[in-house]
Amino acid sequence: MIAAARAFPTLLRIAVAEMVAYRAEMVIWILTATLPLVMLALWNAASAGGPLDGFGQADFARYFAVTLLVRQLTGVWVLWELNQQIRTGALSPQLLRPMNPLWWQFAETIAAIPWRLLVLGPVLAGVALWRPEIVFVPTLAAAAGFAVSLVLALLVAWFVQCLFGILAFWFDQSLGLFQVWFFVWALLSGYVVPLPLLPTSVAAVATYLPFHASLGAPVEVLLGFAPVGPTLAIQAAWVAVLGAATYLTWNAGLRRYGAVGA
């Protein structure tokens, strides 16, 4: 673990170099995850006649702009990498090295963030130009809370995908399973519907679920309609649970990999 921490800066540097080499593909991937804008179009038209439950057009614009930002900054694709590596046996050379391959994957995930900001910049600027009233300056407390919440959200998203990726040691269908997860996530995380606009009972439960912890939580902390303390606590709990699950199942997965071969 300590050795990994010492090596991580180098891993990050090389991952950044790799992202530069992949920049054309990266830009396209980033532009693909823009569903919040499609959602915004709908909610914007819906609230043209007046605010819905306190959400006016400007509120929706602000909400989905921040959601887009958070979605990108917590963008993870380790599931697909793991799937491919396990299926094709490309995982084997990585297992020969005395460092868990997931560290390198994580370095790549972080290295993509500058690109995401670069591509999102003009997009968010576009939204701000369309609705200038959405631009705001968060309080220091909200900004700090947001930063922590964002890191926790990324970790939740990371471990979730790791877990589904680890399933690939046993099943061919981990991608399909994740798709089902994704549908539920889209509905309960705040991705397509702001949580306050969900039926109250659903929203109440959703606040405690890992879906919200990986997206809606930081959005709501920044915009000020979720309490910072409890939100961060729920997120941290999920990070701990999912992290432990990942650690345990990874080793089980490696045993399975060693048993069936690649």
Partner: peptide
Amino acid sequence: RASFLLEFFVGVGTTASVVLPLVFVFDHT
């Protein structure tokens, strides 16, 4: 065989993900 079942659920999920946002919006207007 597991795929077969899974594809059914993915199908349900796809339909739900297209329909439910509309249902949620029209809950309010």
